[in-house]
Amino acid sequence: MELILAIASGVLFGTGFYLMLRRRLAQLIIGLGLLSNGANLLIFTAGGLTRARAPVIAEDASLLVRPFADPVPQALVLTAIVIGFGVLAFSLVLAHGIHTMAGTDDIDEIRSGGG
């Protein structure tokens, strides 16, 4: 399972960077989104995957018994997803503003037309 997720995260990073090198704003933003999700998946995978073992102490025990799913990476990913979503929404609005003002979403044309 780790291997599949690691490959998926790598693919997300790769496509994210590739799209960010393109010339159009829309592709750049999709690239940004893929990149941040690649990072999220990586945190999740690097923290270790444990299925169906909630980190809850059983009623008759006083200690948490291994193996259990580490809650910290999940908390980190949750925070990162929320932040990533907000930032992505902002950059979409910004790109929309540029598109309405410049009439194009080609980065080179925006630059040559700008004063």
Partner: peptide, 13 residues
């Protein structure tokens, strides 16, 4: 930011 986040994931892992 994405790079920083990636680093943190590897660091925690």
């Amino acid at each position: 930011s994405s790079l920083f986040l990636t680093t943190l994931g590897l660091l925690y892992g």
